[in-house]
Each structure stands twice: as C-alpha cells, then as structure tokens.
C-alpha cells in the first residue's frame, strides 16, 4: 500500500524535493537554452541537460519517494534512465548529421569539410586502376 505524501519523514521529504527540483530545473534550463541559443549546432546541446541529470534527478526522486511510501524497494525507474540515456544520443546524432550534410552540400561557411571531393570519392590504398 502507498502512504500519502504527508506521512513521509522529513529527511526523506527533503531528499525527494531536492532531487525533483534539481531535475526539473535542469529540464527547464535545457528548454530555455533550446529556445535562446543562436545556431542549430549549439541548440543541440541544450536538451541534453534534460536527458542526462534532468531525467536522473527526477528518477532518483521517484525511486526514493515510492520506496519510502510503499515500504519496499522500487527501482524500475532505472530502466527509464538507461533507455533515455542510450536512445537520445541516437536522435541527436541523426539530427546533427542531417544538418552537417545539408550545410556541406550548401557549401556553408564555418562547417568543416574534410575533403575537397565527396567522402565516397576519397582515395583508397587498395584502389587499383581498372584494366580495360
């Protein structure tokens, strides 16, 4: 059974409130940064606040609260943390690489271009002139 929040002991309540506020604050700051940073590549960095310790803080708060309130170990929130940590970088990379590809195709300034020709045309050691 789950006890109401009022019955929590003071240290537990403080710990829950602390982690919840830290996580929520990081998510909020990430959202603000997402809105305010000037370039696309810079904006990519802001949501990572919410998906690293933002989710971490809320996860810890939830684990502490439900463990204390239902008097048994509740740690399945860890799965949310693991999945968020391992899946969001894939989205970030996908978006970043799409932007990079577009900027390179458009010959934008300030975007590194490793080879004067496309990456699929770079020289290879094992390339041999084809006998015709």
């Amino acid at each position: 059974m789950i006890y109401p929040a009022v019955d929590l002991s003071l240290p537990v309540a403080f710990a829950v409130a602390f982690f919840l506020l830290v996580g929520a604050a990081l998510a909020l700051i990430g959202a603000i940064g997402f809105l305010r940073l000037p370039s696309f590549y810079e904006r990519l960095h802001a949501p990572a606040l919410g998906t690293s310790w933002g989710i971490g803080g809320i996860m810890l708060a939830s684990m502490i609260y439900f463990t204390a309130a239902s008097s048994r170990l509740v740690i399945h929130e860890i799965l949310i943390g693991i999945f968020v940590t391992f899946t969001t970088p894939i989205t970030f990379m996908l978006l970043a690489r799409a932007a990079l590809h577009r900027d390179r195709t458009a010959r934008s300034h300030g975007v590194p271009r490793k080879y004067p020709i496309g990456p699929e045309e770079r020289p290879r050691e094992d390339d041999e002139p084809q006998a015709s």
């Binding site: 590549y41 970088p89 970030f92 490793k114």
Partner: peptide, 28 residues
C-alpha cells in the same frame, strides 16, 4: 564513446571517419 560524448551536455559526436580514424565533434 559516441553515446558518452553525445549524452554529455556540451558535446555532440558528429561523425567517425574510418579512413583515418578521426572523429568530428561539436562542442558548446
């Protein structure tokens, strides 16, 4: 390494070049 660097706020892994073994990152 890509997961670590990208989930760290302030750095994003962009591409890995298997030809010369270098990575391209964007840092805040």
């Amino acid at each position: 390494l890509a997961t670590i660097l990208t989930s760290t706020p302030g750095s994003v892994w962009l591409e890995y070049d298997s030809y010369d073994g270098s990575i391209l990152m964007h840092v805040l």
